[in-house]
Design a binder for these strands. Structure first.
Lengths: 205, 205
DNA sequence: GAAATTTATTAACTTAAGTTAACGAATCGA
DNA sequence: TCGATTCGTTAACTTAAGTTAATAAATTTC
């Protein structure tokens, strides 16, 4: 019997995972933990589920507890993957801030357990526990800094270097994600990724 | 007599520019404006001034009131430009969050007027005016969303498309920044940028 | 204001990614 | 389980970016 089919046990495990993550930023009071649990924000999705489509308005923010989410665009009929979010990965689609319909899709690469938040419940939590504002600011600043660094890496690297960087930084993705999605994520075609791998084998890497 | 040499007048103008920017997020009380002014955070730098070097620790955050800042790396002796910040552009180097020495440089592309903040004065402001926490969270969330979108654009575009995108999104940069820095920013060599421009003229664009 | 340096362009050549197509393997769906 | 689709790789060819080098123009420096 898979873990995903034991709802109560899973829920406890996921809650603990979330609290462990948050505790890196600030220790939580029992009262605060309870308030989080009461929000009932854990969602379970099957592999392939599309959480957000181009043209839709969404106010949902995502925090991945287990599994893998993917962001992608469809440009000239082609999927262009721009991000993978795995355990402890957090993100909010641009449309929340811009208040425009989404330009990208979000789907599940694997069966996933996701914390889904929205501005209303954030507001509620900020009012009840002002410390949450601090948590969200720190988290958002950290995500921004990391994203800037990752963008810089991408800009200053060749496709081959980007492949090696990714292998180093997120080796798990190569076990979890189809090659053609990884190729797209690296900004190249699947054929190019095949060639790069071959080239590196010849070079003995 | 240039504006930069009339300190008092400039200071007033810059303060107003800052307050206009902030008012898009929340109206400020006079008391709050005064507290900001009292922090004495406006700095003026000459073109070419290097604000941050590789290997240095910095706790400074920047908000550009006038002028242009550039972030760049030196990789194998080559400058790789990854960002330009112009009027109302804000950023904090990764080293604040990571607590590691900076991997990049920051310099002034033009004579610039910059608001320079640091975590200590932020903390002071957060304590005096808790609303500042909200402002910083909103700002940081917006910057994150914009940066994600910009990263997505870069990943899903060819060098030629990126050039056209930049021409559309930030035409002023082409008047303010040397071509070879723009080329680097676009992830290509100056020679390639020259070729792209030529190609587009032939195509009649 | 002359010399030195930096910048932008062009050209010839090299390298690597994109494109199109083919094919076997793996996966999916009924 | 079988047929259809998707996936990953390879190959041949095209396209465009990188590299090296030369040169003229612009800018900086003294």
């Amino acid at each position: 019997m898979s873990n995903l089919s034991k709802p109560k046990l899973i829920k406890k495990t996921m809650e603990n995972e979330l609290f462990t993550f948050i505790s890196k930023y600030m220790p939580l009071l029992e009262e605060e933990k309870k308030a989080i649990i009461d929000l009932d924000i854990f969602r379970s999705y099957k592999k392939g589920t599309v959480l957000l489509k181009e043209g839709e308005f969404s106010r949902d923010g995502y925090f991945v507890l287990k599994g893998c989410l993917r962001c992608y665009y469809i440009i000239d009929g082609e999927e262009k993957t721009t991000a993978f979010y795995t355990e402890s990965g957090a993100f909010a689609p641009l449309c929340i801030v811009s208040n425009k319909p989404s330009e990208h899709y979000v789907d599940c690469v694997e069966d996933s357990l996701i914390l889904v938040s929205n501005p209303d419940m954030e507001k509620e939590m900020f009012e009840k526990f002002p410390r949450f504002q601090v948590l969200c600011r720190l988290l958002s600043e950290e995500l921004l800094a990391k994203n800037l660094a990752s963008y810089d890496d991408f800009k200053t690297s060749s496709p081959e270097q980007r492949y090696l960087n990714l292998l180093e930084a997120r080796p798990d993705l190569f076990q979890r994600v189809p090659q053609h999605q990884l190729a797209s994520y690296l900004g190249i075609t699947p054929q190019s990724l095949s060639r790069i791998r071959k080239r590196l084998v010849v070079k003995g890497k």
